[in-house]
């Protein structure tokens, strides 16, 4: 499943926009790192910042990632 990517020309400037989901508000580095690793395994990670404890994945990864985080929250 390939996400649609928007592309358009602005004069000489090209702009690329990738749709997806931002995950934030992780309480610990460990919780954050585990989720990032899982996103990498799924092949959906677009951007991550350990300083901000945020990462961005493509929409294709939304359901498995949310399920993963819910499983973690139960433990």
């Amino acid at each position: 499943l390939v996400d649609q990517i928007y592309l358009w020309e602005l004069e000489k400037n090209r702009l690329k926009a990738t749709p997806g989901i931002l995950f934030r508000d992780f309480l610990t580095d460990m919780e954050f790192d585990q989720a990032v690793e899982y996103a990498k395994e799924l092949g959906v990670l677009v951007w991550e910042s350990s300083i901000k404890r945020m990462f961005f994945i493509t929409t294709a990864g939304a359901q498995p990632m949310i399920a993963f985080l819910k499983r973690k929250a139960v433990k």
Binding site: N13, R14, L15, K16, A17, P19, G20, R24, I66
Partner: peptide, 15 residues
Amino acid sequence: MPRAQKGLLLVECDP
């Protein structure tokens, strides 16, 4: 519990 923010775009462009 972390929060998921949907309906976003990662925009790549010149400065």
